[in-house]
Amino acid sequence: MSPTRPALLGLLMLAATLAGCAKDPAKYDAPLFALGSGFSAKSVCSCIFVTGRDEAFCRDQARVSPDVARFKVDHDQKLVTSKVLGGWKQQARYVDDQLGCVMQ
């Protein structure tokens, strides 16, 4: 997949979301992409550090449609950072094997 495709998809989704909001105003203040990167960061953090699966497995586990979230895993800090289109940064950090991950 070319690097521009996720961006195009994202812009299309943003346009669709804005059009949708005109009819059905969102009740909550988090933008769609912040929810997307939040879901990615939290899900991938728990998938890797709690359930012990590898990055490829967790990428597929947390894949939503459209697939625009990208994550980075810092194994030293036990921290997962996710972004959508380079923005809407969200992070989740692993605490320990009882308390798992918490969004930052």
Binding site: T17, D24, A26, P31, L35, K42, Q90
Partner: peptide, 10 residues
């Protein structure tokens, strides 16, 4: 964006 549960969790 209209989901209460997604707003709560993420």
């Amino acid at each position: 964006t209209t989901s209460s549960v997604l707003a709560m969790l993420y």
